[in-house]
Design a binder for these strands. Structure first.
Lengths: 226, 226
DNA sequence: TAACCCGAAAATGGATCCAAAGCTAGAACT
DNA sequence: AGTTCTAGCTTTGGATCCATTTTCGGGTTA
């Protein structure tokens, strides 16, 4: 896993962004779980860089809510409490219908076909990581028409920061209630095809709300009691 | 304005945070308008520091949406378009009632008395900067009971990033319609005293919505047409 | 005259080295 | 034996120096 070469000519883009991209993937994949510490020197060594671009990268990720930096105490992946995840979901219940409303009129038929194809793959899917990736792709694609900042990036941020807890939730609850997700996605997809912003927004809001409530029934996912 | 002393023993806190605090104040006060560039070396010289803690500070402010950093192109205060400010206000219409709902049950009578006193000062106030400061203090105090992240910090962020446009709007529209703000604040305050979360949320939502619509009637505040 | 190209100055990104703050483990004292 | 204080190590924060990229100005040419 060690790259001993001194950054092989790089890809032309900034080194700190490469590091950020790598760490982002690590965190989203669950390879770095919440609460886990990230030592600058370790990462620097892995990439054959100094600690400076690593610090930059950690700051960039802090912007996205994926890391938190305390002075003289280092960087960690934030450990969210149940009440924090609960509030994030309630924020999503407002913001994602807003993003969808911005996005829907700008989606073309090719986008919508891709949405349908992703949903087919979700229904055929079996493993957890596969579902997480496809579900994320489905929803974020439905928002892809919304390019206005900071809404679009913040929606992604809320997804990113709760990724780990979604994984834990699905692993715990099993595939028993997966049919509900598919039913909701089907309704959402139909509303999108009909270009019905109001319908789509309501279904989406309910989809997120239901997930929030089911999540709240698994307090064991979150670290200490709180 | 130059501080030639090499950081006089500092205040004990990290140098980068002192720089961040200074720049934040500069941006919020309007001393550094949107679109304006921030050269690392200038700031470093002002504080008698190297450019490194300045870069850190700029990253911290990027986290708050007050600056944007492009690789090899430097830092600027972001220049928001009208559609971006419009979306920010629509985000606020959802998020601030949510924050108020979290906050209201936790406010004590001393807090509510302070809210009343601030509102009195708003009504007695005459100048623009005074109104901006007091209005900000009023609303943020009403959310002070909400400590759950990332909601509380994001509400502040949305306020910060639109501060400049609020100032420009008030300067342009004059004190003619200031009475509406006071009426809305009075209604909001009464709902808070009655601990009526629903009422307070509705009034607040309307307050923000009205501001958004009036703002949209002054496209000249924003730079290019877009 | 206007457009284009090239070179120098300026500003940023990154590496190395040093200082300071936190954490940990061991010893001494109550 | 438990607690506390101290000494050392580890890790991060900051300064200085170098490399790279961008930008801006002057000069040339169509």
């Amino acid at each position: 896993m060690l790259k001993e070469e001194p950054a092989p000519a790089s890809g032309g883009e900034a080194a700190s962004e490469r590091v950020a991209k790598h760490l982002r993937a690590q965190i989203l994949s669950g390879a770095i779980g919440p609460g886990e510490r990230i030592r600058q020197e370790d990462i620097a060594e892995q990439f054959g860089l100094s600690r400076l671009p690593v610090r930059e990268a950690l700051r960039m990720l802090e912007t996205e809510g994926l890391t938190e930096l305390q002075a003289n105490k280092g960087a960690r992946v934030p450990h969210l409490s149940m009440s924090e995840v609960d509030v994030i979901y309630r924020m999503r219940e407002s913001l994602e219908p807003l993003a969808l409303g911005e996005s829907l009129p700008l989606l073309d038929t090719a986008d919508i076909e891709r949405l349908g194809s992703i949903q087919s793959r979700i229904e055929a899917n079996t493993d957890i990581q596969g579902f997480l990736d496809l579900d994320r792709e489905f929803h974020l694609l439905s928002y892809s028409g919304c390019t206005v900042e900071p809404l679009s990036s913040y929606v992604v941020r809320l997804w990113n920061t709760t990724q780990h807890y979604r994984r834990a939730f699905i692993a715990l609850s099993g595939p028993g209630r997966m049919w509900i997700v598919n039913a909701e996605h089907q309704l959402l997809l139909d509303a999108i095809v009909r270009r019905d912003v109001v319908d789509a927004g309501n279904i989406l809001r309910g989809h997120i709300r239901r997930t929030r409530i089911e999540l709240a029934q698994h307090p064991d996912i979150f670290g200490p009691g709180k």
